[in-house]
Design a protein around this nucleic acid. Structure first.
Length: 431
RNA sequence: GUGGAUAUAGCUUAGUUGGUUAAAGCGCCAGUUUGUGGCACUGGAGACCGUCGGUUCGAAUCCGACUUUCCACCCCA
Protein backbone atom coordinates (compact mmCIF):
# COMPACT_ATOMS: atom_id res chain seq x y z
CA UNK A 1 0.00 0.00 0.00
CA UNK A 2 1.36 3.36 -0.98
CA UNK A 3 2.10 5.54 1.98
CA UNK A 4 -0.19 8.32 0.79
CA UNK A 5 -3.20 6.01 0.96
CA UNK A 6 -2.28 4.43 4.24
CA UNK A 7 -3.40 5.85 7.53
CA UNK A 8 -0.80 6.55 10.18
CA UNK A 9 -0.24 3.75 12.67
CA UNK A 10 -2.59 3.82 15.59
CA UNK A 11 -5.18 6.01 13.89
CA UNK A 12 -8.65 5.10 12.70
CA UNK A 13 -11.14 6.41 10.22
CA UNK A 14 -14.68 6.66 11.44
CA UNK A 15 -16.58 5.70 8.32
CA UNK A 16 -20.04 6.82 7.18
CA UNK A 17 -21.43 3.40 8.00
CA UNK A 18 -20.34 3.78 11.63
CA UNK A 19 -20.53 7.48 12.37
CA UNK A 20 -24.13 7.23 13.59
CA UNK A 21 -22.87 5.12 16.47
CA UNK A 22 -20.55 7.91 17.56
CA UNK A 23 -23.28 10.48 17.20
CA UNK A 24 -25.57 8.31 19.29
CA UNK A 25 -23.20 7.93 22.23
CA UNK A 26 -22.01 11.52 22.00
CA UNK A 27 -25.59 12.71 22.32
CA UNK A 28 -26.19 10.57 25.40
CA UNK A 29 -22.96 11.74 27.00
CA UNK A 30 -23.64 15.40 26.36
CA UNK A 31 -27.20 15.14 27.57
CA UNK A 32 -26.21 13.43 30.78
CA UNK A 33 -23.60 16.10 31.44
CA UNK A 34 -26.26 18.71 30.84
CA UNK A 35 -28.64 17.07 33.35
CA UNK A 36 -25.88 17.43 35.93
CA UNK A 37 -25.45 21.10 35.09
CA UNK A 38 -22.27 20.87 33.05
CA UNK A 39 -21.40 23.01 30.06
CA UNK A 40 -19.17 22.07 27.18
CA UNK A 41 -15.66 23.46 26.92
CA UNK A 42 -13.53 23.20 23.79
CA UNK A 43 -9.80 23.67 24.07
CA UNK A 44 -6.98 23.42 21.51
CA UNK A 45 -5.53 20.07 20.42
CA UNK A 46 -2.09 21.28 21.41
CA UNK A 47 -0.73 23.13 24.39
CA UNK A 48 2.66 24.21 25.66
CA UNK A 49 4.60 21.08 26.57
CA UNK A 50 5.27 22.47 30.03
CA UNK A 51 1.58 22.35 30.89
CA UNK A 52 1.48 18.56 30.64
CA UNK A 53 4.81 18.12 32.40
CA UNK A 54 3.51 20.15 35.28
CA UNK A 55 0.01 18.72 35.54
CA UNK A 56 0.25 15.12 34.42
CA UNK A 57 3.65 14.81 36.05
CA UNK A 58 7.25 14.63 34.93
CA UNK A 59 7.79 11.10 36.11
CA UNK A 60 4.73 9.53 34.54
CA UNK A 61 4.88 7.21 31.55
CA UNK A 62 2.53 9.47 29.68
CA UNK A 63 4.92 12.41 29.89
CA UNK A 64 8.16 10.48 29.71
CA UNK A 65 7.51 8.35 26.69
CA UNK A 66 4.11 8.87 25.17
CA UNK A 67 3.77 12.49 24.21
CA UNK A 68 3.65 13.86 20.70
CA UNK A 69 5.96 16.79 21.19
CA UNK A 70 7.43 19.05 18.54
CA UNK A 71 9.09 22.40 18.25
CA UNK A 72 7.39 25.09 16.19
CA UNK A 73 9.06 27.43 13.76
CA UNK A 74 8.92 30.01 16.53
CA UNK A 75 11.01 27.63 18.66
CA UNK A 76 8.21 26.84 21.08
CA UNK A 77 7.71 23.31 22.39
CA UNK A 78 4.19 22.15 21.70
CA UNK A 79 2.50 18.88 22.64
CA UNK A 80 -0.61 17.22 21.30
CA UNK A 81 -2.82 16.71 24.33
CA UNK A 82 -2.45 13.23 25.84
CA UNK A 83 -5.54 13.77 28.00
CA UNK A 84 -8.21 16.39 28.58
CA UNK A 85 -7.81 17.58 32.16
CA UNK A 86 -4.72 19.73 31.70
CA UNK A 87 -6.14 21.81 28.85
CA UNK A 88 -9.41 22.37 30.66
CA UNK A 89 -7.57 23.45 33.81
CA UNK A 90 -5.39 25.81 31.80
CA UNK A 91 -8.44 27.33 30.14
CA UNK A 92 -10.12 27.74 33.51
CA UNK A 93 -7.17 29.74 34.83
CA UNK A 94 -6.46 31.71 31.69
CA UNK A 95 -10.08 32.83 31.43
CA UNK A 96 -10.53 33.05 35.19
CA UNK A 97 -13.72 31.01 34.98
CA UNK A 98 -13.60 30.48 38.74
CA UNK A 99 -14.27 34.18 39.22
CA UNK A 100 -17.74 33.73 37.76
CA UNK A 101 -18.73 31.70 40.78
CA UNK A 102 -18.14 28.18 41.96
CA UNK A 103 -18.38 25.40 41.18
CA UNK A 104 -17.28 25.46 37.56
CA UNK A 105 -18.52 22.35 35.78
CA UNK A 106 -17.35 21.54 32.26
CA UNK A 107 -17.52 18.58 29.92
CA UNK A 108 -15.77 17.83 26.64
CA UNK A 109 -15.38 15.35 23.83
CA UNK A 110 -11.87 15.50 22.41
CA UNK A 111 -9.25 13.58 20.55
CA UNK A 112 -6.14 12.71 22.53
CA UNK A 113 -2.71 11.56 21.41
CA UNK A 114 -0.29 9.14 22.99
CA UNK A 115 2.66 7.50 21.32
CA UNK A 116 1.98 3.95 22.42
CA UNK A 117 2.24 0.56 20.83
CA UNK A 118 -1.07 0.38 19.05
CA UNK A 119 -3.48 -2.47 19.46
CA UNK A 120 -7.17 -3.04 19.82
CA UNK A 121 -8.67 -0.45 22.15
CA UNK A 122 -5.33 1.34 22.36
CA UNK A 123 -4.84 3.88 19.66
CA UNK A 124 -2.39 6.68 19.22
CA UNK A 125 -5.22 9.01 18.39
CA UNK A 126 -8.22 8.23 20.54
CA UNK A 127 -11.24 10.05 21.88
CA UNK A 128 -12.30 10.89 25.36
CA UNK A 129 -15.41 12.25 26.92
CA UNK A 130 -14.57 14.00 30.16
CA UNK A 131 -16.16 16.00 32.92
CA UNK A 132 -14.36 18.34 35.33
CA UNK A 133 -15.61 20.06 38.48
CA UNK A 134 -13.63 22.93 39.97
CA UNK A 135 -14.03 24.39 43.42
CA UNK A 136 -15.95 21.57 45.08
CA UNK A 137 -14.25 20.07 48.12
CA UNK A 138 -17.16 18.13 49.57
CA UNK A 139 -17.42 14.37 49.19
CA UNK A 140 -20.84 14.82 47.66
CA UNK A 141 -19.08 16.15 44.57
CA UNK A 142 -17.20 12.87 44.24
CA UNK A 143 -20.36 10.87 44.74
CA UNK A 144 -22.30 12.95 42.25
CA UNK A 145 -19.64 12.58 39.58
CA UNK A 146 -19.54 8.82 40.00
CA UNK A 147 -23.33 8.72 39.88
CA UNK A 148 -23.15 10.51 36.58
CA UNK A 149 -20.80 7.91 35.09
CA UNK A 150 -22.95 5.12 36.43
CA UNK A 151 -26.00 6.70 34.90
CA UNK A 152 -24.25 7.06 31.54
CA UNK A 153 -23.44 3.36 31.44
CA UNK A 154 -27.01 2.54 32.37
CA UNK A 155 -28.41 4.74 29.63
CA UNK A 156 -26.13 3.12 27.11
CA UNK A 157 -27.30 -0.30 28.20
CA UNK A 158 -23.85 -1.47 29.23
CA UNK A 159 -23.72 -4.42 31.58
CA UNK A 160 -20.94 -6.19 33.45
CA UNK A 161 -19.10 -3.09 34.42
CA UNK A 162 -17.53 -2.72 37.81
CA UNK A 163 -16.58 0.34 39.81
CA UNK A 164 -13.20 0.09 41.48
CA UNK A 165 -12.75 2.71 44.18
CA UNK A 166 -9.84 3.86 46.24
CA UNK A 167 -8.42 6.83 48.08
CA UNK A 168 -4.79 7.71 47.71
CA UNK A 169 -4.92 10.42 50.34
CA UNK A 170 -3.60 13.93 50.41
CA UNK A 171 0.10 14.85 50.09
CA UNK A 172 0.52 14.65 53.84
CA UNK A 173 -0.81 11.17 54.45
CA UNK A 174 0.53 9.87 51.16
CA UNK A 175 4.06 10.83 52.15
CA UNK A 176 3.71 8.73 55.28
CA UNK A 177 2.31 5.85 53.30
CA UNK A 178 5.09 5.97 50.74
CA UNK A 179 7.62 5.88 53.53
CA UNK A 180 5.90 2.81 54.94
CA UNK A 181 5.98 1.15 51.53
CA UNK A 182 9.66 1.85 51.10
CA UNK A 183 10.27 0.26 54.43
CA UNK A 184 8.12 -2.77 53.66
CA UNK A 185 9.45 -3.45 50.17
CA UNK A 186 12.95 -2.53 51.25
CA UNK A 187 13.06 -5.76 53.24
CA UNK A 188 12.58 -7.71 49.99
CA UNK A 189 15.09 -5.81 47.90
CA UNK A 190 16.91 -8.92 46.76
CA UNK A 191 13.73 -10.46 45.34
CA UNK A 192 12.12 -7.49 43.57
CA UNK A 193 12.23 -7.15 39.79
CA UNK A 194 14.33 -4.46 38.15
CA UNK A 195 11.50 -2.06 37.42
CA UNK A 196 10.23 -2.26 40.94
CA UNK A 197 13.66 -1.66 42.36
CA UNK A 198 14.02 1.47 40.27
CA UNK A 199 10.62 2.70 41.37
CA UNK A 200 11.12 1.99 45.03
CA UNK A 201 12.43 5.45 45.82
CA UNK A 202 10.62 7.58 43.25
CA UNK A 203 7.13 6.15 43.35
CA UNK A 204 6.76 3.13 45.63
CA UNK A 205 2.99 2.98 45.06
CA UNK A 206 3.72 1.65 41.61
CA UNK A 207 5.06 -1.56 43.08
CA UNK A 208 1.54 -2.52 44.09
CA UNK A 209 0.71 -2.73 40.42
CA UNK A 210 3.57 -5.00 39.33
CA UNK A 211 2.46 -8.11 37.48
CA UNK A 212 5.59 -10.12 38.19
CA UNK A 213 4.75 -13.18 40.24
CA UNK A 214 7.30 -12.54 42.94
CA UNK A 215 6.55 -8.84 43.29
CA UNK A 216 2.80 -9.25 43.29
CA UNK A 217 3.09 -11.90 45.98
CA UNK A 218 5.15 -9.58 48.12
CA UNK A 219 2.74 -6.75 47.36
CA UNK A 220 -0.17 -8.82 48.65
CA UNK A 221 0.90 -8.26 52.21
CA UNK A 222 2.05 -4.70 51.79
CA UNK A 223 0.37 -2.04 53.88
CA UNK A 224 -2.55 -0.40 52.07
CA UNK A 225 -3.07 3.32 51.57
CA UNK A 226 -6.30 3.14 53.45
CA UNK A 227 -4.50 2.30 56.69
CA UNK A 228 -2.49 5.47 56.38
CA UNK A 229 -5.18 7.99 55.51
CA UNK A 230 -5.28 11.00 57.77
CA UNK A 231 -8.49 11.83 59.61
CA UNK A 232 -9.70 14.24 56.98
CA UNK A 233 -9.02 11.93 54.05
CA UNK A 234 -10.56 9.00 55.85
CA UNK A 235 -13.70 10.95 56.65
CA UNK A 236 -13.92 12.14 53.10
CA UNK A 237 -13.57 8.62 51.74
CA UNK A 238 -16.12 7.15 54.18
CA UNK A 239 -18.51 9.87 53.28
CA UNK A 240 -18.15 9.17 49.55
CA UNK A 241 -18.74 5.49 50.15
CA UNK A 242 -21.84 5.98 52.22
CA UNK A 243 -23.30 8.30 49.61
CA UNK A 244 -22.66 5.72 46.93
CA UNK A 245 -24.31 3.15 49.16
CA UNK A 246 -27.40 5.26 49.52
CA UNK A 247 -27.42 5.88 45.77
CA UNK A 248 -27.39 2.13 45.26
CA UNK A 249 -24.14 2.16 43.37
CA UNK A 250 -22.02 -0.92 43.86
CA UNK A 251 -18.29 -0.57 44.19
CA UNK A 252 -15.26 -2.52 45.12
CA UNK A 253 -12.71 -0.83 47.34
CA UNK A 254 -9.45 -1.70 45.66
CA UNK A 255 -6.38 -0.31 47.41
CA UNK A 256 -4.30 -1.24 44.38
CA UNK A 257 -5.90 1.30 42.10
CA UNK A 258 -2.99 3.65 41.60
CA UNK A 259 -3.59 6.11 38.90
CA UNK A 260 -0.77 6.88 36.51
CA UNK A 261 -1.29 10.60 36.48
CA UNK A 262 0.36 12.56 39.24
CA UNK A 263 -2.35 15.09 39.91
CA UNK A 264 -4.73 12.79 41.73
CA UNK A 265 -5.48 13.08 45.46
CA UNK A 266 -8.01 11.39 47.73
CA UNK A 267 -10.69 9.64 45.70
CA UNK A 268 -9.65 7.73 42.58
CA UNK A 269 -11.81 5.33 40.62
CA UNK A 270 -12.00 3.22 37.51
CA UNK A 271 -14.85 1.57 35.72
CA UNK A 272 -13.71 -1.77 34.38
CA UNK A 273 -15.55 -3.99 31.94
CA UNK A 274 -15.64 -7.48 33.40
CA UNK A 275 -16.50 -9.32 30.22
CA UNK A 276 -14.51 -12.49 30.16
CA UNK A 277 -11.97 -12.13 27.35
CA UNK A 278 -9.97 -9.25 28.79
CA UNK A 279 -10.80 -6.60 31.30
CA UNK A 280 -10.77 -3.13 29.94
CA UNK A 281 -10.69 0.11 31.84
CA UNK A 282 -13.25 2.26 30.09
CA UNK A 283 -13.35 5.14 32.53
CA UNK A 284 -10.87 6.58 34.96
CA UNK A 285 -10.88 9.59 37.20
CA UNK A 286 -10.70 11.06 40.63
CA UNK A 287 -10.04 14.09 42.73
CA UNK A 288 -7.15 16.46 42.11
CA UNK A 289 -7.24 19.02 44.86
CA UNK A 290 -3.75 20.34 44.25
CA UNK A 291 -3.69 20.67 40.48
CA UNK A 292 -5.01 24.18 40.06
CA UNK A 293 -2.56 25.52 42.62
CA UNK A 294 0.21 23.56 40.98
CA UNK A 295 -0.58 25.46 37.81
CA UNK A 296 -0.29 28.77 39.61
CA UNK A 297 -3.96 29.28 40.40
CA UNK A 298 -5.84 29.61 43.66
CA UNK A 299 -6.55 26.68 45.97
CA UNK A 300 -9.41 25.07 44.11
CA UNK A 301 -10.28 21.51 45.10
CA UNK A 302 -11.35 19.77 41.92
CA UNK A 303 -12.17 16.45 40.36
CA UNK A 304 -12.92 14.84 37.06
CA UNK A 305 -12.90 11.72 34.96
CA UNK A 306 -12.68 10.57 31.36
CA UNK A 307 -14.31 7.83 29.34
CA UNK A 308 -12.49 6.30 26.37
CA UNK A 309 -14.94 6.40 23.49
CA UNK A 310 -13.30 3.72 21.35
CA UNK A 311 -13.35 1.38 24.31
CA UNK A 312 -16.91 2.30 25.13
CA UNK A 313 -17.97 1.41 21.60
CA UNK A 314 -15.90 -1.76 21.72
CA UNK A 315 -17.66 -2.94 24.86
CA UNK A 316 -21.07 -2.07 23.48
CA UNK A 317 -20.34 -4.07 20.37
CA UNK A 318 -19.07 -7.02 22.39
CA UNK A 319 -22.27 -6.95 24.41
CA UNK A 320 -24.41 -6.84 21.30
CA UNK A 321 -25.97 -3.52 22.21
CA UNK A 322 -27.80 -2.26 19.17
CA UNK A 323 -27.51 1.38 18.32
CA UNK A 324 -30.55 2.62 16.40
CA UNK A 325 -29.78 3.49 12.81
CA UNK A 326 -31.15 6.86 11.79
CA UNK A 327 -33.47 6.84 8.80
CA UNK A 328 -31.52 7.94 5.80
CA UNK A 329 -34.02 9.10 3.19
CA UNK A 330 -37.64 10.20 3.42
CA UNK A 331 -38.28 10.50 -0.28
CA UNK A 332 -36.45 9.69 -3.50
CA UNK A 333 -37.71 11.43 -6.63
CA UNK A 334 -37.01 10.15 -10.14
CA UNK A 335 -37.16 12.61 -13.02
CA UNK A 336 -37.42 11.23 -16.57
CA UNK A 337 -36.44 13.73 -19.23
CA UNK A 338 -34.95 17.19 -18.92
CA UNK A 339 -38.14 18.92 -17.78
CA UNK A 340 -38.94 16.28 -15.19
CA UNK A 341 -35.39 16.22 -13.91
CA UNK A 342 -35.59 19.92 -13.26
CA UNK A 343 -38.91 19.36 -11.48
CA UNK A 344 -37.36 16.61 -9.35
CA UNK A 345 -34.49 18.93 -8.52
CA UNK A 346 -36.94 21.59 -7.35
CA UNK A 347 -39.20 19.24 -5.38
CA UNK A 348 -36.30 17.62 -3.59
CA UNK A 349 -35.04 21.05 -2.61
CA UNK A 350 -38.42 22.01 -1.19
CA UNK A 351 -38.62 18.81 0.84
CA UNK A 352 -35.23 19.56 2.33
CA UNK A 353 -36.32 23.09 3.14
CA UNK A 354 -39.10 21.44 5.14
CA UNK A 355 -36.46 19.58 7.16
CA UNK A 356 -36.88 16.14 5.62
CA UNK A 357 -34.31 14.08 3.79
CA UNK A 358 -34.70 13.86 0.03
CA UNK A 359 -32.59 12.68 -2.86
CA UNK A 360 -32.73 12.50 -6.61
CA UNK A 361 -30.32 11.28 -9.24
CA UNK A 362 -26.97 13.03 -9.62
CA UNK A 363 -25.03 10.31 -11.39
CA UNK A 364 -27.12 9.67 -14.52
CA UNK A 365 -28.74 6.34 -13.70
CA UNK A 366 -31.75 4.91 -15.53
CA UNK A 367 -35.18 4.51 -13.97
CA UNK A 368 -34.73 0.98 -12.76
CA UNK A 369 -31.29 1.62 -11.36
CA UNK A 370 -32.62 4.65 -9.54
CA UNK A 371 -35.34 2.55 -7.96
CA UNK A 372 -32.74 0.05 -6.82
CA UNK A 373 -30.69 2.85 -5.38
CA UNK A 374 -33.74 4.27 -3.59
CA UNK A 375 -34.36 0.85 -2.11
CA UNK A 376 -30.75 0.49 -1.06
CA UNK A 377 -30.59 3.78 0.79
CA UNK A 378 -33.81 2.91 2.57
CA UNK A 379 -36.02 5.59 1.05
CA UNK A 380 -39.42 5.63 2.74
CA UNK A 381 -41.10 6.94 -0.41
CA UNK A 382 -40.35 7.16 -4.09
CA UNK A 383 -42.00 9.17 -6.80
CA UNK A 384 -41.47 9.04 -10.57
CA UNK A 385 -42.05 12.15 -12.65
CA UNK A 386 -42.23 12.24 -16.44
CA UNK A 387 -43.88 14.42 -19.07
CA UNK A 388 -47.38 13.14 -18.22
CA UNK A 389 -46.98 13.95 -14.56
CA UNK A 390 -45.74 17.41 -15.38
CA UNK A 391 -48.70 18.21 -17.58
CA UNK A 392 -51.20 16.78 -15.06
CA UNK A 393 -49.39 18.16 -12.01
CA UNK A 394 -49.99 14.76 -10.43
CA UNK A 395 -47.68 11.88 -9.67
CA UNK A 396 -47.77 8.59 -7.82
CA UNK A 397 -46.13 8.48 -4.43
CA UNK A 398 -45.02 4.97 -3.55
CA UNK A 399 -44.60 3.75 -0.01
CA UNK A 400 -41.55 1.52 -0.33
CA UNK A 401 -42.44 -0.60 2.67
CA UNK A 402 -45.98 -1.52 1.65
CA UNK A 403 -45.61 -0.95 -2.09
CA UNK A 404 -48.84 1.06 -2.09
CA UNK A 405 -49.14 4.07 -4.31
CA UNK A 406 -51.11 7.25 -3.75
CA UNK A 407 -51.75 10.08 -6.14
CA UNK A 408 -50.19 13.33 -5.07
CA UNK A 409 -49.99 16.86 -6.51
CA UNK A 410 -46.62 18.04 -7.64
CA UNK A 411 -47.51 21.70 -7.74
CA UNK A 412 -47.55 24.06 -4.75
CA UNK A 413 -49.65 21.58 -2.77
CA UNK A 414 -47.01 18.88 -2.92
CA UNK A 415 -45.37 19.49 0.42
CA UNK A 416 -48.60 19.67 2.35
CA UNK A 417 -50.01 16.51 0.76
CA UNK A 418 -46.75 14.63 1.20
CA UNK A 419 -46.56 15.66 4.81
CA UNK A 420 -50.10 14.41 5.45
CA UNK A 421 -49.43 11.02 3.91
CA UNK A 422 -46.08 10.72 5.66
CA UNK A 423 -47.47 11.49 9.10
CA UNK A 424 -50.42 9.16 8.54
CA UNK A 425 -48.43 6.17 7.45
CA UNK A 426 -45.44 6.57 9.73
CA UNK A 427 -47.13 7.87 12.82
CA UNK A 428 -46.34 4.68 14.74
CA UNK A 429 -42.72 4.88 13.79
CA UNK A 430 -42.45 8.51 14.72
CA UNK A 431 -44.08 8.02 18.10
C1' G B 1 10.01 -0.59 24.62
C1' U B 2 10.27 -6.61 24.96
C1' G B 3 8.29 -11.35 23.11
C1' G B 4 4.84 -13.90 19.64
C1' A B 5 1.42 -14.16 15.43
C1' U B 6 -0.53 -11.91 10.91
C1' A B 7 -0.79 -9.73 5.80
C1' U B 8 -4.34 -12.41 -1.27
C1' A B 9 -10.21 -7.59 -5.05
C1' G B 10 -14.10 -2.66 -1.04
C1' C B 11 -15.27 -6.99 2.79
C1' U B 12 -14.71 -12.43 4.24
C1' U B 13 -11.69 -16.02 2.51
C1' A B 14 -9.50 -20.36 -1.17
C1' G B 15 -4.92 -20.99 -3.56
C1' U B 16 -2.65 -28.24 -3.28
C1' U B 17 4.92 -30.49 -3.24
C1' G B 18 7.26 -23.00 -6.15
C1' G B 19 4.96 -23.76 -12.93
C1' U B 20 0.81 -19.89 -18.23
C1' U B 21 -4.36 -14.84 -18.28
C1' A B 22 -4.55 -15.65 -9.08
C1' A B 23 -10.31 -18.28 -7.47
C1' A B 24 -15.09 -17.87 -4.81
C1' G B 25 -18.97 -15.59 -1.86
C1' C B 26 -20.73 -10.81 -0.39
C1' G B 27 -20.66 -5.78 -2.12
C1' C B 28 -20.41 -2.51 -6.58
C1' C B 29 -21.98 -1.59 -11.94
C1' A B 30 -25.02 -3.21 -16.10
C1' G B 31 -28.72 -6.30 -18.34
C1' U B 32 -32.96 -10.06 -18.17
C1' U B 33 -40.89 -6.94 -22.20
C1' U B 34 -36.56 -0.11 -23.16
C1' G B 35 -42.12 4.15 -16.99
C1' U B 36 -40.75 1.42 -11.44
C1' G B 37 -37.17 -1.35 -5.89
C1' G B 38 -36.64 -5.95 -2.70
C1' C B 39 -36.27 -12.18 -5.19
C1' A B 40 -33.96 -14.97 -9.10
C1' C B 41 -30.80 -15.39 -13.36
C1' U B 42 -26.79 -13.46 -16.78
C1' G B 43 -22.67 -10.52 -17.60
C1' G B 44 -18.93 -6.75 -16.19
C1' A B 45 -15.46 -3.81 -13.51
C1' G B 46 -12.21 -4.49 -9.53
C1' A B 47 -5.76 -7.51 -6.82
C1' C B 48 1.36 -4.85 -9.27
C1' C B 49 -0.93 -11.40 -3.76
C1' G B 50 1.62 -5.44 2.61
C1' U B 51 6.61 -3.06 0.79
C1' C B 52 11.61 -3.69 -0.74
C1' G B 53 15.37 -7.08 -1.68
C1' G B 54 17.25 -12.25 -2.24
C1' U B 55 17.14 -17.69 -3.91
C1' U B 56 15.31 -19.86 -8.71
C1' C B 57 14.74 -20.94 -15.68
C1' G B 58 10.22 -19.52 -12.94
C1' A B 59 7.73 -16.93 -6.37
C1' A B 60 1.17 -15.30 -3.76
C1' U B 61 3.94 -19.86 -2.36
C1' C B 62 10.97 -20.40 -0.04
C1' C B 63 14.56 -16.73 2.67
C1' G B 64 15.69 -11.69 4.81
C1' A B 65 14.57 -6.73 6.21
C1' C B 66 10.93 -3.15 6.90
C1' U B 67 5.79 -1.89 7.58
C1' U B 68 0.72 -3.00 9.22
C1' U B 69 -2.75 -5.24 12.23
C1' C B 70 -3.54 -8.45 16.34
C1' C B 71 -2.02 -11.09 21.19
C1' A B 72 0.92 -11.07 25.88
C1' C B 73 3.97 -7.82 29.01
C1' C B 74 4.14 -2.55 30.19
C1' C B 75 0.91 1.44 30.63
C1' C B 76 -3.69 3.64 30.29
C1' A B 77 -9.00 5.71 28.28
Amino acid sequence: MAIITQRVKGTEDILPKDSYKWQFIEEILRKEAKYYGFKEIRTPVFEHTELFCRSVGDTTDVVQKEMYTFVTKGDVSITLRPEGTAGAARALLENALHNDGLPVKVDYITSCYRYEKAEKGRLREFHQFGMEVYGAALPVADAELICCVDSIFKRLGIKNIKLELNSIGCPTCRAKYQEALREYFGAYKSQLCGTCLSRLQKNPMRLLDCKSEVCSKIAEKAPTVLEYLCEECKEHFDSVKSMLDSAGIEYNVNPNIVRGLDYYTKTVFEFVSTDLDSKVTVCGGGRYDGLIEELGGPHLPSLGYAIGLERLLMIMEAQGIEIPKPSSCDIYIVGLGDKAQLKAFELVKSVRAASLTAESDIVGRGLKAQMKYANKIGAKYTMVIGDDEISNNKAKLRNMLSGEEKEISINDNFLEEFDNIYINEYIDVLV
